[in-house]
Simulated scan of single mutants.
Amino acid sequence: MYPKINDLLMISVDSGDEKETRVEYKSRIADMDEDSILIEVPIREGGGQLKKLFVGDELSIYFMTDGGVKNYFNSYVTGFKQDVIRMVRIRKPDPDSIGKIQRRSFLRVSGELEVAVRMDNDRRFLTRTDDIGGGGISFYCEPEHRVAEGDRMSCWVVVPYKNGSLEHVPFEGEIVRIKALDNGRKIVMAKFTTIADIERQKLIRYCFERQLDFRR
């Protein structure tokens, strides 16, 4: 069951930072078409700040139906529309994916992709990702590579598709969290700070292909 025009949506945005993903924003549905839901620019719940969104941003959303039941779905930003007000276009979910069980997992999939990392001090290394999404990645880091939360970096990641083609996706990112492993290695979680819309869409395409594989 889809939400309706004028329904209120409660939204969380995947930024790669766990603290930020717990922030809730509210928006209202302004219009709908066959493939998209057009919403007003989200406002932070209790704070009033507008949330600037970008194409490819992953969203966890719920809306209320009669009786106070929360209905959850995941989506992502596909574009914008300027009318009387500025609207954000998000992907309309498959009706079967809308459920009453809370889901806070964003469109992020596990996968070991090759990634080249260049830190701000020009240190460089090659490694592999642990997971990847439209808002950020996490990757393995050997003990000899010193990294810290807040460090910035320039990277590219090799993205393979089911048809056999490969894409090299460049981006700039910031480390938001580091998890130490028992073997001395680390998992570094980073959010994208600069990535072209077309490059983000390449990552989202890969994530959807991987999700289809998992479902099969």
Rank of each mutant, 00 (worst) to 15 (best):
E112Y: 06
F125D: 07
T129Q: 08
V77I: 02
R91N: 05
S60Y: 09
Y72L: 07
S75K: 08
E112F: 05
E149G: 07
G99C: 04
C155P: 07
K81P: 03
V69M: 11
N71E: 11
Y76D: 02
V147H: 09
I137E: 04
I101M: 12
D122Q: 14
I98A: 04
T127V: 03
V117E: 13
K100I: 12
I90S: 00
K92N: 05
T78K: 10
V158Y: 00
I98L: 09
F106S: 01
D120T: 14
L126N: 15
D83W: 00
V55D: 06
V159P: 02
F125C: 06
I85A: 03
K81I: 02
R103N: 15
I98T: 10
G67L: 08
C141H: 00
E142F: 07
R108K: 10
L113V: 06
H145Y: 12
G136I: 01
V84P: 02
F80D: 12
M64P: 01
I90A: 05
F125H: 12
P93R: 08
R89E: 11
G135F: 05
E144T: 15
G135S: 14
R86D: 03
L107A: 02
R152W: 07
F54G: 05
R108S: 03
I61K: 08
T78H: 00
S110F: 12
V147S: 04
V117F: 11
P93H: 04
S105K: 14
P160L: 02
L113K: 01
G79Q: 02
V158N: 05
V117T: 11
V69L: 07
S138F: 03
P95I: 13
E142L: 09
Q102R: 15
M153C: 08
D96Q: 10
R123G: 09
Y76A: 06
V117R: 10
K81E: 15
D151F: 14
R146H: 12
V55E: 14
V55C: 12
R123A: 13
P95R: 11
D131T: 10
S138P: 06
T129L: 05
T127G: 05
F63Q: 00
V69A: 02
E112M: 08
G79D: 06
S105P: 00
D83K: 00
R128L: 07
V55N: 12
G99R: 14
K92E: 01
T65D: 10
G68E: 09
D83S: 02
K100E: 11
S75P: 09
V147W: 10
N121W: 13
P93I: 02
T65L: 03
G111F: 06
R146C: 01
G133L: 01
P93Y: 03
R103I: 06
R91L: 08
D57S: 07
V159Y: 01
E58D: 12
D66G: 02
E114D: 15
R128C: 04
Y161M: 07
I101C: 00
Y161E: 07
V117D: 11
S154D: 07
R118Q: 13
N74C: 09
D130N: 14
E144H: 13
G56F: 04
D151Q: 11
M87D: 04
